[in-house]
Nucleic acid binder design. Structure first.
Lengths: 124, 124
DNA sequence: TTTAGACATCGACGATCATCGATGTCTGGA
DNA sequence: TCCAGACATCGATGATCGTCGATGTCTAAA
């Protein structure tokens, strides 16, 4: 995919400030490609079952979590849990490591923090 | 709705740490109600058109933005823009103020920051 | 009062999503 | 080599979502 040369797109208000109405803004601070990329990550968070999965994995701290740890409190079928886990891995939020018969999941270090950083203002 | 007495639910890894596999975690750090409430906000962010809307509103800084400012760069019909704006307002991310014939939208102060805070660890 | 314009709401339609049962793949043990 | 178990993938289905045209509401001006 084409990499854009912008450091870190955020949603928080930048230094731009021109008072007017019904005039096109000087520049849209989020390209469509950036918006699509960002929305893909938020889509992964836009499901309460997946948020619960993340919280379960996060709750085990540095330890990794296997699928059975996740399936039971979620009250979902095994294929559905596997589906949600794939979405979280594809979004870059979870890491999967297969050891023997078990698959262990862990938070990708800094992934959630980087996503959080896109929500706050760059300067303040 | 029933208010839960937890200060601020987050996804980041708390201090819990017990090494084991295939045993239910000591406690799920996100209740279902909290997960549903959080996912509703991320659902509002899970669309690239809505992210663009937020960035446009944020780009006007302290100034408010009217619908026509948003509609043009988005290349969407007016009802669709209105629909997205309603979703963002319902999620508590945008504030709507009607003055005369125009409706002005602005970021709810601290809303994005509060959402970002749920993604990072409480302590570190 | 009538008219024009800005915006919200409604109803419909195609697309995407969450979910599940069935099945496939791979590993470890008998 | 065969079997059992853990997990992923596949196909199908019902629900939700994004989008639009048509219409409604409200305000300001004529």
């Amino acid at each position: 995919m084409a990499r854009v040369a912008v450091p870190a797109p955020t949603l928080g208000a930048p230094a731009v400030d021109e008072g007017r109405c019904c005039v096109a803004p000087g520049g849209v601070p989020l390209t469509e490609a950036q918006a699509v990329e960002l929305s893909a990550k938020f889509k992964a968070l836009a499901d309460h079952k997946r948020l619960t999965i993340l919280s379960i994995v996060a709750a085990s701290g540095a330890e990794e979590t296997c699928v059975c740890d996740i399936q039971e409190p979620l009250d979902l079928s095994q294929p559905t849990v596997s589906h949600h886990l794939k979405i979280l891995v594809d979004a870059g939020l979870l890491a999967r490591e297969k050891r023997g018969v078990w698959a262990y999941y862990s938070l990708v270090p800094g992934a959630l923090e980087a996503l959080a950083a896109t929500l706050v203002t760059p300067g303040a």
